[in-house]
Amino acid sequence: MTDAWLLTVLSPMARAAFYLLAAVTLAGALGVTLTRNLFHSALWLAVTLLGVAGLYLYLGAEFLAVVQVLIYVGAILVLLLFGVMLTARIADPAVPALNRHALLAALVALCTGWALRLAVRQAAALPAGPVAPVPLETLGRGLVTTYVLPFEVLSLILIGALVGAVVIARPERRS
């Protein structure tokens, strides 16, 4: 597997693939934020997520890519879609997508982006090239040894979120 990967990475096609994926991802992101139709926005999100999954693949994190697709696209996105559906007014062309502060928000975002980029630039030394991908076994072992606490906490968070969501979204009692 390693060899195949190395071969893939070194290949210029792989490089092209990266740029493509990057472009798709970013385009999808733009689509998410700028589309008036919320449903379309969700679809663009799907695109973006898939793009990110692809990038994961490119980076050798196959498990993560799968998880991304399964969970993010498969569950979270669906959830969002449910939400979209449940809260009507999805196809109202009169309603603009962005609010009054869009420009200011753009500015802030740009500044933040620029600042982050500066940080990246200032970094002492970025590693030159990719290293061997992390075997899945390491990931799994890590989850149940070193990171078992965050893991358990995460499960608690999820439970809490579920319970909380049920409580919040529950229809009001008639007592």
Partner: peptide, 14 residues
């Protein structure tokens, strides 16, 4: 918050 963070970041970086 974002603006503040960006500013802080920028200042720290510069």
């Amino acid at each position: 918050a974002a603006a503040g963070a960006a500013l802080a970041l920028a200042v720290a970086l510069t």
